[in-house]
């Protein structure tokens, strides 16, 4: 095969993959700009006069803006806490020997082996017992449970790749353990920390199961509200799609902004 036809095939493959992954987004965004009649038309209409009516409607709805605020509160707090708690733990795991280290490490990893739905009922009952249902705190706690291992996992790997000599040079110069962590490990671990923050952010932002189970009215998050339109006899597809677009937008922008770190982080350790 010549180089040119190989490149052509390559491009074709990319095109297929791209349309496959991007089409649902296109469909969501374009549907959010259609009126109900155009939405339900069969065969679907490709050319239509876009309208912002759906957006006007969802933003007028207190429920949607409240949900987005809830989501922001829960997700930002979770991500912030996951990074604040996860990075020192990762430093300890990366650089110190202590009893039970292997067990702790395995526990962190095995946390991610459990399917979340298995725990949904016990967690619900627990939250009910301690009166935490329908609070921001319960969502933050449960998301933290899922996100901390990811942060610790990625950051441990990142911190391990920082040469030990740096830490020892700093120790000789009189830096204490915390200074070493703050002035050497944190700045040099930025790629890993950024990636784990993104993962944490996206996971919490998209999470539906626990948000659905653990909230009532007060702290419904954005994905819950989006699905809540699906009750009743009529499906307001325009509003659902508009809400979906609004939900996806922040993560997309966030991910685009930090995508360079993301690629660097995902391939880190590859050359070890």
């Amino acid at each position: 095969m010549t180089g040119r036809s190989a490149r052509l095939l390559h491009a074709l493959g990319l095109l297929v993959t791209l349309s496959f992954t991007l089409f649902p987004f296109y469909w969501m965004v374009s549907s959010s700009l259609k009126e109900q009649a155009a939405l339900l038309a069969s065969p679907p209409v490709w050319l239509f006069r876009p309208t912002l009516a759906n957006y006007a409607e969802i933003f007028a709805d207190q429920k949607v803006s409240g949900a987005i605020l809830n989501s922001l509160i829960v997700v930002c707090t979770t991500t912030f806490l996951a990074v604040c708690l996860g990075t020192p733990a990762a430093y300890a795991l990366a650089r110190f020997e202590f009893r039970g280290k292997r067990d702790l490490w395995f526990w962190f990893i095995s946390n991610r082996m459990i399917s979340p739905i298995v725990l949904a009922l016990p967690v619900y009952l627990l939250a009910l017992q301690v009166n935490l249902l329908d609070t921001h705190l319960v969502l933050i706690l449960i998301y933290l449970t899922f996100n901390l291992p990811i942060v610790i996992w990625i950051c441990t790997d990142q911190f391990r790749s920082i040469p030990r000599d740096l830490e020892q040079a700093a120790r000789l110069e009189g830096a204490d353990q915390f200074t070493i962590f703050r002035r050497i490990y944190l700045p040099l671990g930025v790629p890993g920390i950024a990636v784990s923050a993104i993962f944490s952010f996206i996971f919490s932002w998209n999470e539906l199961l626990y948000a659905l189970v653990l909230t009532r009215r007060q702290v419904q998050t954005a994905p819950v509200v989006a699905t809540s339109f699906m009750s009743g006899y009529e499906l307001p597809w325009g509003k659902i799609m508009a809400t979906g677009t609004v939900i996806v937008l922040p993560v997309t922008l966030f991910a685009l902004a930090v995508s360079r770190h993301m690629v660097r982080g995902l391939t880190m350790g590859a050359t070890k």
């Binding site: 740096l166 020892q168 040079a169 700093a170 000789l172 110069e173 009189g174 050497i184 700045p187 040099l188």
Partner: peptide
Amino acid sequence: AMVFQSYALYPHMSVFENMAFGLQM
């Protein structure tokens, strides 16, 4: 004071900051 085989310079700090680190400590 020790000079390491790998030099062990802090990659994210300027030369000045590298040399000043111990004095700041």
